[in-house]
Nucleic acid binder design. Structure first.
Length: 771
DNA sequence: TCGGATTCGTGCACGTACCG
DNA sequence: CGGTACGTGCACGAATCCGA
């Protein structure tokens, strides 16, 4: 009784494998074969010893080549088929086998199987012939065994030598155990195998496999480079094809922005987060909006946008304009209730994410907790992924990646430097493929590698080189916008403003301040107030209270460093502007007198930062206010003393702001040091006592730049200090430059000024008429 | 228990922002 | 508007952790 193999109850695959186990050779006649099918049986064939004891594979017709064969055969009918032609045809058809064999994705396993097939062809364990006589659709499997009773077993039916044929449904085969019948089938096979138009293509197949990617041959480095480039760019390419830009934004986005959206969307989808690090002005906001919108449409997500206070309005506009389902939240509103009270948003955009680079920060902890709890995907936006250390990067990434999560890459350069990954594991006890591992590395290469995996960053130069067009007449690059307008790439030309500086000119205010004497004086300041721990008396006249003991402990912990801090700050102010520098000096004197006053009267010291704003109230009480000289610095000690007394009482009124510690606990030496500092600082102030802004060369050079050189242009002036900004604004205004605004932290709505400055690009054209 | 590595916590000046 | 809180600048000793 023959057994039916329909791949439902009995799999032809299993039947063949079982029988092959006891066989020493086999003959297959099929219409089609591929690698997947071959792979099912290749282990059994591997056992054959080769030569006569092999697998003879007669391929009747491959479907894709049907047409080719037909025309070839037609020629035979016309008597045109001859040996050279048949050989050429053979080669041609053999080539088509490559596609047939390698159909599907090239996995490492496939590659191995192909190599094995090649080996078997070379060793003669399998011989392949192509039957060109006529279209042959037969499917026959003949297995020769050592068995006495049934040395020959045949399977006849519909199954090709493919995965589907051997194990897929829809086939029908029977085994033929009856030896007489089996022998007839064997003769039938031999007839065709030895037909004159049965051409051996084993050798050609080996050649083809040699040329394919499954080859063991060595390749030119260039090919390997190309292959790597292909694989490395896989993400970018599939990003571009897989994620569809939302309709509302398709028109708005420039090509390079759309590109960023696709790539970033892929990162966001596959890795749970992405860092968009485009430099300023490339439209991070729009890009992020598009990604959020894309996710909204694809995954029905809602978005939480966390941004600095001054950007909430802008984000609000974007949300409204593109109808994003999103909530905008100022980062400073994140407090302890945030995690519990905020509902679940599956996408979180963090604008200016470098604000959350400090893991110690409370907001950092809360945002991270929220993201973890809600499994939100995170879009980080920042033009400066790191400020002071590489750790800034990993801290931001840690918002959505657990520190010990395997991220698939490691700090290779660092691992190498410690002597390999085994050594690394031994030393640090965690996987080298984690953020923790990266945090150990100081090599920039490692961090670049990490950033490549999570960041989309394009510089202006990159955009210019890859997306911009060249305007020959203007000699300038431009980008065509969707609405047909053309935007030229602004040229950025760093220039230095030269202004005369004569170190012998007694009239130049900066000559005095930039002198070695000033630097030396500042460097030799005792700054005793900033290292109070050093001046605690060993045998205090009175026993310190519990609270005082705590303060004392803290004071001794803060060492000399603070003094260095203080010094650096003074130099920074001096660099910014002489005016700011002088103001800082005056504050210093006042603070010193505050302590001197306390020592004199045996009153406790206020420990903690002194409000500079409070002090300025006193300092600005000067009579020159009405005139345009701006800065009037007090130089009389008595005046300071008097102000310090008032300030002390103010501190007393705001008692809770400070820690209070008895001045009796300190060495008398402190008085001398504070007074010496006062003298030194006053000597500097006296140098520039008559700070006449008209003589300020910095300011004069700036005025020239604004009023003459760039008279018709819009100008932004940046400074680190509010004092400098106020000084400049005041002075420039007094010199007749009317269209100007001073924006500092004290200003209510900085965005409004930004709109005023650049109404067009902010679509605020109608809001303000003029600067 | 030792010692090397790592983390913590602190001081003040300046700036920003929210809450009631 | 006053009160409050946070973050940045940073280096060093103390505390803690970890393995031998």
């Amino acid at each position: 009784m023959p057994k039916i193999y329909d791949n439902i109850e009995n799999y032809l695959k299993s039947g063949l494998i079982t029988t092959l186990e006891s066989s020493y050779r086999a003959d297959f006649c099929v219409g089609y074969f591929n690698l997947r099918g071959w792979k099912l049986l290749d282990e059994q064939i591997e056992r054959f010893s080769g030569e006569e004891q092999c697998c003879r594979l007669l391929v009747g017709m491959q479907r894709p080549e049907e047409e080719l064969l037909r025309t070839a055969l037609a020629r035979t009918d016309e008597g045109l088929m001859d040996n050279p032609r048949a050989l050429a045809l053979k080669k041609e058809i053999a080539l088509s086998f490559r596609q047939q064999l390698t159909f599907g994705l090239p996995t490492a396993e496939d590659e191995y199987s192909l190599q094995k097939l090649k080996q078997q062809l070379k060793q003669g364990k399998i011989k392949v012939k192509l039957f060109l006589g006529y279209p042959l659709h037969a499917k026959l499997y003949l297995l020769y065994r050592e068995d006495k009773l049934a040395p020959l077993i045949a399977y006849v039916g519909s199954s090709n030598l493919t995965m589907a044929g051997l194990s897929g449904q829809g086939e029908l085969n029977v085994d033929v155990l009856e030896q007489d019948a089996a022998q007839k089938l064997s003769d039938w096979f031999d007839n065709r195998w030895n037909d004159m138009w049965s051409l051996d293509i084993s050798r050609e197949l080996v050649e083809i496999l040699d040329e394919s990617w499954a080859s063991e041959k060595l390749f030119l480095p260039y090919y390997i480079y190309l292959k790597m480039a292909y694989h490395l760019s896989q993400e970018a390419r599939s990003g571009i094809s897989d994620y569809i830009i939302p309709r509302e934004l398709r028109e708005e986005l420039l090509p390079f922005q759309a590109n960023a959206v696709s790539i970033a969307a892929r990162h966001l989808d596959k890795r749970g987060g992405v860092l968009i690090g485009d430099v300023v002005g490339l439209g991070k906001t729009l890009t992020a909006t598009a990604i959020a919108k894309l996710f909204e449409e694809t995954f029905f997500t809602e978005t939480l946008i966390i941004c600095p206070k001054n950007l909430t309005e802008m984000w609000g506009d974007y949300v409204h304009r593109y109808q994003l389902r999103a909530r905008v939240m100022s980062i400073s509103l994140i407090n302890k209730d945030f995690v519990g009270k905020t509902r679940r948003y599956r996408v979180v955009i963090i604008d200016e994410s470098h604000n959350l680079r400090n893991r110690q920060g409370k907001r950092y902890a809360l945002v991270r907790e929220y993201i973890e709890k809600n499994e939100s995907r995170v879009i980080l936006l920042t033009a400066t992924p790191y400020n002071k250390s590489y750790l800034d990067i990993s801290n931001q990434l840690r918002l959505f990646i657990a520190e010990d999560k395997d991220i698939g890459i490691g700090p290779e350069r660092f691992i190498e430097s410690v002597g390999g990954s085994t050594e690394f594991m031994a030393r640090y006890q965690y996987s080298p493929h984690t953020l923790l591992a990266f945090e150990k590395s100081d090599f920039s290469e490692d961090w670049q590698e990490l950033l490549k995996t999570y960041m989309v960053r394009r510089t202006r130069t990159f955009i210019k080189n890859n997306y911009a067009l060249w305007d020959e007449s203007r000699k300038q690059y431009y980008i065509p916008f969707g609405d047909g307008t053309i935007n030229y790439f602004p040229e950025r030309i760093p220039k230095k403003v030269q202004y005369s500086f004569d170190e012998n000119d007694p009239g130049d205010l900066y000559v005095k301040l930039y002198s070695e004497r000033v630097v030396d004086t500042i460097n030799s300041l005792h700054l005793a107030r900033y290292g109070l721990g050093n001046y605690l008396g060993p045998n205090p006249r009175k026993k310190p209270s519990k609270e005082e003991e705590r303060i004392m402990a803290n004071l001794s912990r803060a060492g000399k460093r603070l003094m260095g801090f203080c010094r650096t700050n003074l130099f920074k102010r001096l660099e910014s502007s002489g005016a700011s520098f002088l103001i800082s000096l005056a504050r210093h004197v006042l603070r010193n007198y505050l302590f001197l006053y306390a020592l004199e009267k045996d009153l406790p010291f206020p420990i903690g930062q002194q409000e500079s704003a409070d002090m300025d109230e006193f300092l600005e009480e000067d009579d020159n206010a009405g005139e345009n000289y701006g800065v009037a610095i007090i130089t009389e000690k008595d005046k300071y003393r008097q102000l310090a007394e008032e300030h002390y009482h103010r501190c007393q009124r705001e008692k809770s702001k400070y820690g209070w510690i008895s001045s009796q606990l300190f060495l008398p030496e402190l008085v001398r040091l504070l007074e010496e500092d006062v003298d030194a600082i006053l000597s500097i102030i006296n140098l520039a006592r008559h700070w006449d802004p008209r003589e300020d060369r910095h300011l004069n050079a700036l005025e020239k730049l604004i009023a003459k050189t760039h008279r018709k242009e819009k100008i932004l002036v940046f400074t680190q200090f509010a004092d400098t900004a106020r000084y400049l604004a005041e002075q420039l205004r007094s010199r007749g430059i009317k269209d100007l605004a001073c924006v500092t932290g004290a200003v209510d709505n900085p965005t409004e000024y930004a709109y005023r400055f650049s109404p067009l690009s902010n679509r605020a054209k109608d809001m303000y008429d003029e600067i």
